[in-house]
Design a protein around this nucleic acid. Structure first.
Lengths: 334, 334
DNA sequence: TTGTATGCGTTATCAC
DNA sequence: GTGATAACGCATACAA
């Protein structure tokens, strides 16, 4: 069997209590005892069994982050931010992918029910308000990137409305008046928040909102191209298109390019997220950056603070965006 | 405190043993007892504490996959494959990112030492042979995507040499004779294996190997562009460039495009991996596909088989690649 | 079919 | 400063 604290105690000629004390430097232990214990630990190659420890302490110092998938490089910096903040507090972040599926998400949440982890962070959850609020009663959870209406749960997102407003305002400043939007009909508030920003920019510049200029599909790559095809069928196609994500923006750009359009000249396109791809593409995609690292940091800081203070401060935090100018949006040319 | 198996037992009017039995359907329990227990469970909202269970059973049914980062969408399908296979065996996959850092990887591996997980899969490890072999003595580990020379550890990768051979052979078949390669000087056998395939293709077609045609940088995006600039300084620049990854290939393409080159006409470029980006780019990137999903499946199947049979079958498995033809490689034009 | 009792490895309480 | 020992929540050997 494996070497336990008992074996160490025997080898060091002390009690298990003393071993435990040096392991956690919980109480003052004599220098000689400390040394003997440490020697024994090294000698036996002992490594404490955390199942025992966690069971006893009723905590694991692990937070589970549930992401839809690792296909979106977008989550990368968020996770880095999470891990940095967690590590500063002695916590670890573990990842798991839900594939945006309710049942999988629930199965993963089981890890907080069965005490395998202390808390869970949901990025783009499929759960409904009621379930979330119930969960939040008994457990520590948080939402990240995607808020849920009326959910009284700790939430950290970017300022979606403001980011969209900035992107569309920039287009208008560049002389564009017929501005299309590629959104989603998925049940995601980030989409509707960005639509709201789009509408506010139009309103404030006395441009009439035209429902025909809003295409709604899914987040899948193909829907950028589909949107472009749709816009072309309009009597007056838009001269600029704001997309809810960089992926969709790239898809629009790719389709336009393949039809011989010159990006920036014949048509302007703006994305959202500022994922690596948007800078790697030719042309570079103008976009709205999310403060991913900060989002990740913030959500775990708040969550751990909740855990430590045994509270549930269910704030909803919106972090500032940053507008990134590249080559896909240029002044309007008649 | 939380509701435990004891509370359920009391509420159901049976012993904890009986509750445990229905929980695990381990022994035959009378129907009436089963029903009472299930009622009590529902009534009390009981959820078994896995720390207790795992401690008792000396297993967690969790496998930790350590990936460099979630920035590479490349790992996405591998993880999906892992999860599918794991779930079929009653296991869960948890992810964690090492940032390609030795110390972080070691800290994460601590989860297998302290019994928080049953095994670990390393994707692109920084550990050396000696450490790996030692680890493999006492624990269940596996390598994925990136093998380590002389490591006697279960390993699953694509046929790197063969894939590169296919890519370069295709260029030669298209009339190219001066073929550059963008590789890495990182300590990664996948790089040298692919270089070997490159050389074999040249040899078999009586093209002399020219060290000046091999650029070695890192995996970072910038190194594609740098490689392109370097190749241009040669007296006879290559007419085709094989890149060790799609990321680097896109970087080469982007740089060439920015300098007015026509991809496929003025220069041909081939990548490796077949990540989403390679199909999203304009032009589509010709590349070598890795069977990611299968790689993920295979490594956990083998690993779990090791765990179940209490063996260490340290095979090294190489899965077949698939050549994907797109628009970035075209026949040579004088 | 069921219950009692023990132990998994650890930490914390208490007495010394 | 240190050592017994109970307890964490659970599964199981054994007895009934």
């Amino acid at each position: 069997m494996n070497v336990t604290i008992k074996d160490v105690a025997k080898a060091a000629g002390v009690s298990v209590a003393t071993v435990s004390r040096v392991l956690n430097n919980s109480a003052t232990v004599s220098e000689s005892a400390t040394e003997q214990v440490n020697n024994a630990i090294k000698e036996l190659g002992y490594s404490p069994n955390f199942l025992g420890r966690n069971l006893r302490k009723c905590e694991t110092n692990v937070i589970l982050a549930i992401i839809p998938s690792t296909e979106q490089t977008f989550y990368s910096d968020i996770i880095r931010g999470m891990q940095t903040a967690a590590s500063e507090c002695g916590y670890d972040i573990l990842l798991s992918t839900s594939n945006s599926t309710y049942s999988i998400e629930m199965r993963l949440l089981n890890m907080v029910f069965n005490r395998t982890v202390d808390a869970a962070i949901l990025l783009g959850t499929q759960l409904d308000v009621k379930t979330l609020n119930e969960l939040n009663q008994k457990h520590y959870i948080a939402l990240c990137c995607e808020r849920v209406e009326d959910a009284d749960v700790l939430t950290v997102t970017v300022d979606d409305e403001g980011g969209a407003y900035a992107a569309v305002s920039n287009m208008i400043k560049n002389g564009h008046k017929k501005i299309g939007m590629v959104s989603t009909n998925v049940n995601a508030l980030s989409s509707s928040d960005r639509e709201a920003g789009y509408r506010r920019a139009l309103e404030e510049n006395d441009i009439e909102y035209n429902e025909a200029y809003v295409y709604r599909g899914t987040y899948d790559f193909v829907h950028g191209a589909k949107a472009f095809e749709y816009f072309k069928t309009l009597p007056e196609p838009p001269s600029a298109i704001f997309c809810i994500s960089d992926i969709l923006a790239v898809s629009v750009v790719k389709q336009a390019l393949s039809e011989g359009y010159k990006i920036g000249e014949d048509i302007s396109i703006c994305g959202f997220d500022n994922i690596l791809l948007s800078s790697m593409y030719t042309p570079g995609i103008t976009t709205v950056e999310q403060p991913c690292y900060e989002i990740g940091r913030t959500v775990v800081e708040e969550l751990i603070s909740n855990i430590n203070n045994n509270t549930k401060s269910n704030k909803s935090i919106r972090l500032p965006y940053k507008f990134i100018e590249r080559d896909s949006v240029k002044p309007y040319k008649k």
